[in-house]
Write a protein that binds this DNA or RNA. Structure first.
Length: 389
DNA sequence: TCGCATGATTGTGG
DNA sequence: CCACAATCATGCGA
């Protein structure tokens, strides 16, 4: 019925496609059909054998025809396709076929269609939100959440890195998902011209794609969570495990301590500067000074030698600085430009004294070591440099 | 392995 | 919140 139509319906080149040399497909179909008709009569066994035999022959025919397809016949096929598309009955037939399709296999998927959001995904989302990896970027939220594990308050670059990676990956994922979806939708739309594909089916396909992709999303979120957890445990470990500071760091800290012995309380800026120089956090600097003060006070005698060494060093650094104020001095012996208030003892510290206390200037922070009163031996001029912040 | 050194934590007071 | 004091836990050299 369809094949007669084009002659009337399509103006251009109607006769061509329907001529004597019919389309191979058509021929195949028409020749394949007859055997099924005599199904009802005759011996089934014989019929089956005959059927198979004929089927083979038909396949042979089809193959033969495929082999002999020419450009011309392709053109014809094209024309026929066009003719079918433009057939006036096509929409009706199309919708009927769609309906039939709906009612058969595909409808079975309806059941699982409206599933609630994956609970695991929800859990992961909540977790990432709590960790500050997902959600709006609030002043170091992510970093704060992770680094909150440490009292140091030192910002971890890793956590924000995780956040960044997570977001770029999520973006990539979303892009890939939408790209693929549009691709498939376009494909189905294209196909809907030649086979019954209802809009609903396209929708369903999109949903299926999203479901498939959501497993990737789950994976992404899961691995992000894992990374955050690892980071967190590493921070906790770092807190538990004690590492000695580097020699250079201790040197810098000691230098500051002994050059500000009368008032070893670095300001916030000084602490930051020290932290930067030592490659440690500000709170570690605070810890260090806290420990140092208390231990020095407890046993000044023990620290005497150390004090002398550092006093000497700073003094040397100072004299060097005087010579060439603009030349930064070599490693470790620099005085802090921002405090600029080294309690320098210029000269060799008195030895063998119980407490040399070569620089007990005006103590701006009360008597941080009251039992340690400055002897009169305090060199004149040592206290002039003593300034408090 | 021991003992000291040292960074971190905890509790307290101002 | 900061400093102090006590204490813990680990690092490290002898």
């Amino acid at each position: 019925m369809l094949q007669q139509q084009p002659t009337a319906a399509n103006g251009p080149g109607p006769g061509r496609g329907l001529g004597l040399n019919a389309h191979p497909g058509m021929h195949a179909l028409s020749s394949a059909r007859p055997p099924s008709h005599h199904r009802s009569d005759g011996d089934p066994g014989l019929d089956g054998a005959e059927n198979g035999h004929e089927g083979r022959r038909d396949i042979g025919d089809i193959l033969q025809q495929i082999m002999t397809i020419t450009d011309q016949s392709l053109d014809e096929a094209q024309a026929k396709k066009h003719a079918l598309n433009c057939h006036r009955m096509k929409p009706a037939l199309f919708s009927v076929l769609c309906e039939i399709k709906e009612k058969t296999g595909l409808s079975m998927r309806n059941a699982q269609e409206e599933e609630p959001q994956d609970p695991q995904l929800v859990r992961l989302d909540n977790m990432l939100l709590a960790e500050g990896v997902a959600g709006p970027e609030k002043g170091g939220g992510a970093a704060a959440a992770v680094s909150a594990a440490t009292s140091s308050g030192g910002m971890s670059p890793d956590s924000s890195q995780i956040r960044n990676i997570y977001h770029t990956e999520l973006e990539k994922y979303e892009q890939a998902c939408s790209e693929f979806t549009t691709h498939v939708v376009n494909l189905l739309r294209e196909q809907s011209r030649t086979r019954p594909v209802s809009p609903r089916e396209i929708e369903r396909m999109v949903a299926i794609i999203h479901r498939k992709f959501s497993s990737i999303q789950t994976q992404l979120k899961q691995s992000t969570c894992e990374a955050v957890m690892i980071l967190r445990s590493r921070f906790l470990d770092a807190r538990r495990k004690r590492r000695n500071f580097s020699k250079q760091a201790t040197e810098v800290l000691n230098e500051y301590f002994y050059s500000h012995l009368s008032n070893p309380y670095p300001s916030e800026e000084a602490k930051e500067e020290l932290a930067k120089q030592c490659g440690i956090t500000v709170s570690q600097v605070s810890n260090w000074f806290g420990n140092k003060r208390i231990r020095y006070k407890k046993n000044i005698g023990k620290f005497q030698e150390e004090a002398n060494i550092y006093a000497m060093k700073t003094a040397m650094g100072a004299t060097q600085n005087e010579d060439s104020p603009h030349t930064p001095n070599s490693t470790g012996s620099g005085s802090f430009s921002l405090s600029g208030s080294a309690d320098l003892f210029l000269g060799v510290p008195p030895m063998n004294g119980e407490q040399s206390a070569y620089h007990m200037g005006n103590q701006t922070n009360g008597n941080w070591q009251e039992q340690h009163t400055p002897p009169s031996a305090t060199p004149p001029g040592s206290d002039h440099s003593e300034n408090s912040d």
